[in-house]
Design a protein around this nucleic acid. Structure first.
Length: 671
RNA sequence: GCGCCUGUAGCUCAGCUGGAUAGAGCAACUGGCUUCGAACCAGUAGGUCGGGAGUUCGAAUCUCUCCGGGCGCACCA
């Protein structure tokens, strides 16, 4: 509702500015005064105008206030001049409260298909906390975009790209075939044995991957041979149609299934899993290469260090004519796309894949088959075999978001530059590298886990996790610890509840703590992971918000009513100034904050920053807790006050539940 | 060497397109449970926003410069 008021106020201001001064602004600032006693909205527009009109801000503000006050937009009580020239706006609190109670709010959404790619873990080891940050960011953002009961939203597809033919998978295959001397049948047996023992293949691979990585360089005489073996294994996997490739497929698929299970514990689901094997076998690159050559961004280098390679010119950062061939000598800064041996680089394959995402390779598409069934929808996977005719369409995105960590800034930029160079400027503009910083471990955390930490590393603020060293915290282990800690707390507080219910509550709290922890930091902050912080259920955490919701629920239960009924009664309530003055302001501030969900979601989408919503949920819970302690609802004897307070709890609860919902966090019944 | 990110309270972080007195959480201290459940609330203390210069009516926010940290810069993926 706050956004609705903002928009109508801005429209009115624009009219006045155009009529009175003949001025038009594209961006007009609206803010909130430092104290609610000054009003609900503030416009610093008079400062902006002072220079252009050669008048003092206060004079302009006075003129504008007079003009605006003649016909005030609906819901606005008064506009006055304050400070050095602010226009402060006071709302008609009772009227706006009725709008909020009636759940009137601005809509969010638009046309076009938006493709969100996240998770994309190499299917050769267990997911760790860094992958969790990626998946939680991507999943939350996807929820903000998607259409639902609250907003029109956008049409959204969620992809999880699977690099099933890369070196990381090859490493694990080398481990199986050479360290363990397994063939395909024995690999299958391994999976069956692990299953029998209730052990996880991704955990097994976590250790094997670390072992192989050490093994390559363990013996100085053997390094060359072992590296050669690794390369041959990679090529066999890429090529396909041999036993090595089949072992890779068996392992990668089993690990992928484990990843989907892990993410499902966190309510993270996918629509489509495009795999690199299909990008190779269906020859996406050939079509991309033809297009790039036609558009003139790809050319054969004939001299210099890149002689014999097909290269792409790098655009100058601020150069106006980036793609003009220089007259003297080869462009040594050009990016190699096709090696002199004819194979394609990573960036080349990525360009092809992104051309497909935007529907720019009309002759190419994946085959699709069903892979995984969620309660409400199917997750599809790519295939080079027969395609299921019922498959949805993914490769026609109007806008894309790639949740990829900031270490891949350069290659991501190169893909965008390739699109731009080919003249696909609209696509390039709608390509968002949803970049985020890594999750590292504090030295203390590393020591606690039993890793050897060098003197030098102990002095650093954080240590990067490393799959090759097997150094990190596995996603499932962390989640198990969180749920275990929550379970102990629930057991102590609710011994009367049945086991299954306590399990559910503990899971909701554990997941809430984890998702909130990953979302509370803005994207380009490195998270230095520590169990002490992550396992906290107090202060700025998910459980804090959940607890506030439970409190509200307890009130309705004890009052023998519901939130919905309280809001219906509120519609006929005479407030008589109960929201005004010193006493009413705490209550009113709760309403005002509760009305800002749409505004917050808009900000999150515009800036690709889910952390704002996490912060909002916390602030609202904090505001509600403050209200809760000041006004004892059940003891309130004045019927008007009681009605107002019940409605306040209802509105706060409704918006907290919604905000948590977008964060992928459930609200328990009790906790 | 080049590029991107970053430096705000003892610690961990917010601070929206420059706007009124720089805010949270944790830690510390003081108070509040015969309770709408304290996974909470109220209060105290704690900051020359890395240093300097500039633009502006106004700068934590924009520009320049210096200092300190992080991450990238392969015919790897």
């Amino acid at each position: 509702m706050y956004r609705t008021v903002q928009l109508s106020l801005l429209a009115r201001i624009r009219d006045v500015l155009a009529q009175k001064y003949g001025l038009s602004f594209t961006n007009l600032a609206v803010e909130q005064p430092p104290s609610i006693s000054l009003g609900e909205l503030a416009l610093p527009v008079a400062f902006e105008l002072a220079k252009r009109l050669r008048k003092a801000p206060k004079v302009i503000a006075t003129e504008l206030a007079a003009e605006l006050s003649a016909t005030l937009p609906e819901g606005i009580g008064s506009i006055e001049v304050a400070g050095a020239g602010y226009l402060n706006v006071r709302l008609e609190r009772a009227a706006i409260a009725q709008d909020i109670a009636g759940d009137r709010h601005a809509d969010i959404g638009g046309k076009g298909f938006r493709l969100v790619e996240h998770t994309s873990i190499n299917p050769n080891k267990a997911a760790h906390i860094g992958h969790l940050r990626n998946a939680i960011l991507g999943d939350t953002f996807q929820r903000l975009l998607r259409s639902d009961k609250y907003k029109s939203g956008y049409e959204v597809g969620v992809q999880n790209y699977i690099d099933n033919t890369g070196v990381q998978v090859a490493d694990v295959v080398v481990g199986l075939t050479h360290l363990e001397a397994f063939d395909l049948a024995q690999t299958r047996q391994l999976l069956a044995d692990l299953e029998e023992k209730g052990e996880r293949i991704d955990f097994y691979c976590w250790n094997l991957y670390a072992r192989v990585s050490q093994w390559y360089t363990a013996d100085a005489d053997q390094v060359g041979m072992r590296k050669q073996l690794r390369l041959e294994t990679l090529h066999a996997i890429e090529h396909g149609g041999n036993e090595t490739a089949e072992i890779a497929d068996v392992i990668a698929t089993a690990v992928l299934q484990r990843h989907l299970e892990t993410m499902a514990r966190l309510s993270i689901e996918y629509d489509f899993l495009p795999r690199e094997s299909e990008i190779l076998h269906l020859h996406f690159w050939d079509a991309a290469r033809q297009l790039m050559t036609e558009k003139g961004v790809l050319y054969l280098e004939t001299e210099g260090k890149n002689k014999g390679c097909w290269v792409m010119r790098r655009a100058q950062v601020n150069g106006t004519e980036a793609n003009q061939p220089s007259s003297d000598g080869p462009d040594e800064d050009a990016k190699v796309i096709v090696r002199s041996n004819g194979t394609v680089t990573y960036v080349g394959k990525d360009i092809a894949y992104h051309l497909w995402k935007f529907g720019l390779l009309p002759s190419k598409d994946f085959g699709y088959r069903k892979f995984w069934q969620y309660p409400t929808h199917t997750c599809w996977i790519s295939t080079d075999g027969e395609s299921d005719p019922d498959h949805p369409i993914f490769g026609r995105a109007d806008a894309i978001y790639n949740v990829i960590d900031s270490r891949q800034n350069d290659p991501q930029t190169q893909v965008v530059q390739a699109l731009r160079g080919m003249g696909f400027t609209e696509e390039a503009d709608r390509y968002t590298h949803f970049s985020y910083e890594m999750v590292a471990l504090t030295p203390r955390c590393a020591l606690e886990l039993g890793y050897a930490v060098s003197e030098e590393d102990q002095r650093r603020p954080f240590i990067e996790v490393s799959g090759r060293k097997g150094f990190g915290v596995k996603a499932d282990d962390l989640l198990d610890r969180l749920i275990g800690a929550a379970r102990a707390e629930v057991d102590a507080r609710h011994p009367e509840l049945p086991d299954a219910e306590r399990d559910t509550i503990a899971r909701q709290i554990g997941v809430g703590a984890l998702r909130y922890f990953m979302l509370r930091y803005t994207r380009n902050t490195v998270i230095a992971f520590d169990f002490k912080d992550a396992l906290s259920f107090e202060g700025e955490t998910g459980p804090y918000v959940q607890y506030a919701i439970v409190r509200a629920a307890n009130i309705f239960r004890k009052a023998n009513t519901t939130a919905e009924a309280s809001l219906e009664e509120f519609a006929n309530l005479k407030l008589n100034g109960l929201l005004d003055g010193e006493e009413g302001s705490v209550v009113w501030e709760t309403w005002l904050l509760a009305s800002k969900l749409t505004l917050t979601i808009e900000q999150c989408i515009a800036t690709s920053e889910p952390a704002y919503l996490a912060r909002y949920a916390f602030q609202l819970a904090q505001q509600f807790n403050n209200f809760y302690h000041r006004h004892h609802i059940l003891n309130e004897t004045d019927p008007a006050k009681r009605g107002l307070y019940l409605a306040t709890a209802a509105v706060a609860q409704r918006e907290m539940v919604r905000a948590l919902g977008y964060l992928g966090i459930e609200a328990p019944e009790r906790m």
